[in-house]
Design a protein around this nucleic acid. Structure first.
Lengths: 201, 201
DNA sequence: CCTACCGATCGGTAGG
DNA sequence: CCTACCGATCGGTAGG
């Protein structure tokens, strides 16, 4: 499926509608109406409603994966595990706040995928989450993180960050980067070992 | 609407199905099938599909409210803000893990409520969240919490705890109370001021 | 709690 | 991208 400008428009409005009403709660005609075309006309651009959902989720998964890899590669050698975790958290929050609609669909609507697609995404999500687990486990060894269960701590942090989609609005009273910074700080506090004698501010 | 045993059964299976497929993704006939009755027969017990959703959400909201109030009242006088926060977090996690289906519906499906009901729940959710904000703000004053933005910190903690519904299974490898304890610990670490010289384990 | 049925809406196709 | 249309399913009602 080629990515035309119209196709991207369709995925934009579909993301917004899926975010607000869920995949099952959004009809093909709802999407078409937002584009000022007839419901049936949408099928000149997409194969099916599921095809739209899949493309949104697949591309958003890639954004998360690429952002995490890029962020880790930019780190200097010898960075502590806590520093690697901070980088991962920052990258994740950046992807979420850059496109709250697509992030929300990725987080909440993957259950609506067909079985094969859902299995693929479950696998990629697990591999993504493993980066967080591994770095938290490494932090318990190098001393930069507290001795917490890495599986539970990674789940806690990722669901906390994903919780942004439940309330974040790009035009709220606190700016995007400020919210991002505070979220990173809170997530890091949950697992980072406080430097002895350091400030808690 | 009287709460008969059958009525509770209906809300049990509806919670499970809404949790798995969403409100819009679950049909009245899906609920009926799980009860081995005809779709139309459900209307001998409920007024509408929306009525079922509303009852689940209304009662679950009450559980959270009552649990928080009860927990706070059981605290000794003179408890620090951080101790009050710990109590609130424990109560919240307890309600979530006691019935993951209902908690999930409460957290995710309130958008599907009719406008008036949705407004009422939005108000109650806000009042509930305010308890977390207030205690975090008090912690910045009495020194038991770090100087974080109470609005953002409360949102962070509550969405993190609610994130349990995304992955928690009552029969998983880690028991209910163990997961609860670790979630409480992680949430508290995010805002509690570390005792100077204290252990980070 | 059942059978029989209602109008509305669903995702999608045919043919232009 | 349109009109016209398809069978299936939706939430809900009537009458027992």
């Amino acid at each position: 499926m080629v990515e035309t400008a119209r196709r991207r428009e369709i995925e934009d409005v579909a993301s917004t509608l899926f975010h607000a009403h869920g995949y099952a709660g959004t009809s093909v005609r709802d999407i078409a109406r937002a584009l000022d075309i007839q419901g049936a006309s949408l099928y000149a651009h997409v194969d099916s409603k599921h095809d739209v959902l899949w493309t949104i989720i697949d591309r958003t998964a890639s954004r998360f994966e690429v952002a995490a890899d890029t962020a880790l590669e930019a780190l200097r050698d010898g960075a502590t595990a806590a520093e690697r975790l901070e980088t991962l958290v920052q990258a994740h929050v950046g992807v979420v706040t850059a496109d709250i609609g697509r992030a929300s669909v990725f987080v909440h609507e993957w259950r609506s995928l067909a079985p094969e697609r859902r299995a693929e995404i479950a696998q990629r999500r697990d591999a993504y989450e493993r980066r967080f687990r591994d770095v938290i486990a490494a932090g318990a060894i190098d001393g930069s993180c507290a001795a917490v269960d890495p599986v539970i701590a990674a789940a806690f942090i990722l669901t906390a960050l994903n919780g942004l989609v439940a309330w974040y609005h790009p035009d709220g009273r606190v700016g995007r980067s400020a919210i991002g910074d505070r979220y990173v700080e809170l997530a890091l506090r949950a697992v980072r070992r406080a430097a002895s004698g350091g400030s808690t501010r």
